[in-house]
Design a binder for these strands. Structure first.
Lengths: 315, 315
DNA sequence: CGCTTCAGTTAAGAGATACTTGATCGAGTA
DNA sequence: TACTCGATCAAGTATCTCTTAACTGAAGCG
């Protein structure tokens, strides 16, 4: 009765057999003959000194021992292949998988995707839009773009890519109705939940304080994601206090305007994050360089604005 | 560039090498010669088409690819060996690992351990005292004893082992000072936090309501674990409203007395839990049988008491 | 009822892998 | 300079893993 691991090929055969509940299907998956698989299972059972499968007429079923082994074995091989894929990614120079939040993906990355593809025809760019925190060793992702305060983490390369600022934005039609900041007292305001829990806050109340205007009750439509709030504003649904980074395209293409000259800045910003060392891989550094160049244009958009930092008007 | 898993023995060699950061130590762990291990790593690097280690003068260090692979590989093999141990446990008939909360371990299991060992000399009993929920496929545990309401869970065998009731208990010396329930108005009460969040509650206020006595403010010492509260009561530190199961030994051996005849019953109780099917393993069924026999004596202890269910006096 | 099919098993030999021994190399250490 | 340590290489060997091909026993079907 050894407590050491049994032969791993036999374990892998068992894993496949348990997943398919069929020796022949498992054999097909592993590209071996059913005979070989049968032999592997048998050898594993000899190591354990107990059967793992009960052989029925024309099917197999797991014994208690098999049921105890199967889930953990599946976990183990899942982890191993994820790890192997992670290692392969560091070698592969032709694909780049990026994860970003839904808003950034929709409003920033997706519209510019074509530009990147044209500049770097050798790189296949893939997206994964999620807010979930990434574990680069487990998830199949090379690069993450995340919004938040600067923060150093062990083993991660992290670089700010955007100096963020916010100002009221609305459709051109609405801007005619509300030419002055004080007109906002009667304008429909749009709220975003996704940046609600930041301190210092950079929400409507903060902007009103910066503008030295009386506060308004937090009424108006709420959106869980910033891109939806922006879309609502484009549709004339109200005034949004949007991150300039996300709104840049809508502004430049005239769907939104920024009628007031007062903008709120914040230390929170979009960051480029990848595992330490990965920033030197050609496709990663190409992406980072491209990102930096694309985000530089945000400075121009802010020309002529006067900026107040959110920390100065914190409650 | 295959995305299929590389040879698993090579992966295991890499895992050991990455953990020790030394080929020779890894070779020693796997009981092979350094040459063999070197060869395995080399073959893995050929599969990946990139080096995993940088060979230094008399040391090795991981490359980026190695750093990407190492943690996941370690996870994978950890999962596999846990799974293998779980399978071994279903075969092994000579050991039994039981987990229970600290209070039950200290006040019930530990004092009776010797009896079980005498009755079952062939079974080596092991304990793990924790309140953490158990995953039988991951933690090295055969049987869990947990306190709570009856509940069915997929894949688990679960059986109540105790009909629980509670009554005020104190040292004999204190009992002389507080002969009547109404005397508790001036007695120091001991509280337990570990059963605080149950509904219907079975705490001091519930007992006072059952006894039709005026409520008392929740003052007095609080204990995070019931065994500590019982120890304090034994030491004369106050009156505890204890679960009879935990106090049984202290009562029978005269360290605690139950001067009043009113007891609170509750649907919450200690349960025996194991993976479905495991209840038939010889050492598990022996343990369950022994548990049932030992807990039966609790009925006698309650003879002559009048019982009120906690649900009837719920607030 | 007997033929066919299906899923798994068995046995023997071929082929691939994995390991050992013993020598080599390069760099720090005595 | 000789020595040690850790890794590597080369060649031979042992072990394992797989395949082929024949076999078993139970459904399914005409």
């Amino acid at each position: 009765m050894t407590d050491r691991l049994p032969p791993l090929t036999a374990l892998r055969a068992f894993d496949a057999a348990a997943r398919h509940m069929s020796f022949s299907k498992a054999a097909a998956e592993l590209n071996v003959t059913p005979a070989a698989l049968s032999f592997q299972i048998k050898s594993l059972e000899e190591h354990l000194e107990a059967p793992l499968f009960r052989r029925l007429n024309r099917a197999v079923e797991l014994t208690d021992a098999g049921r105890a082994l199967a889930p953990g074995a599946a976990d183990g091989f899942t982890a191993l292949s994820a790890a192997w894929r992670a290692a392969r990614r560091t070698v592969d120079q032709s694909t780049l998988t990026v994860t970003a939040g839904p808003a950034f993906t929709a409003k920033w990355l997706a519209p510019r995707l074509f530009d990147f593809a044209q500049d770097h025809p050798g790189i296949e760019l893939r997206f994964s839009a999620t807010l979930r925190l990434m574990d680069f060793t487990r998830d199949d992702v090379d690069v993450a773009i995340r919004f938040g305060f600067p923060r150093e983490e062990e083993g991660l390369f992290s670089r700010p890519i955007i100096s963020e600022w916010m100002t009221p934005m609305m459709s051109p039609a609405l801007a005619e109705q509300f030419p002055e900041p004080s007109d906002l007292a009667r304008a429909p305001l749009l709220h975003q939940d996704d940046t609600r829990n930041f301190t210092p806050a950079f929400d409507w109340p903060a902007w009103f304080r910066a503008a030295k205007l009386p506060p308004r009750f937090a009424s108006g439509a709420r959106f869980s994601q910033a891109d939806h709030a922006l879309d609502a504003a484009v549709a004339g649904g109200g005034v949004v206090l949007a991150r300039a980074s996300l709104a840049e395209r809508d502004i430049r293409e005239g769907r939104l305007v920024m009628p007031y000259k007062l903008a709120l800045t914040t230390q929170a910003h979009y960051r480029f994050v990848c595992p330490e060392g990965a920033e030197n891989r050609p496709q990663v550094s190409a992406f980072l360089e491209w990102l930096s160049a694309e985000t530089a244009t945000l400075k121009q958009l802010g020309e002529g604005m006067s900026f107040v930092d959110a920390a100065e008007v914190a409650e």
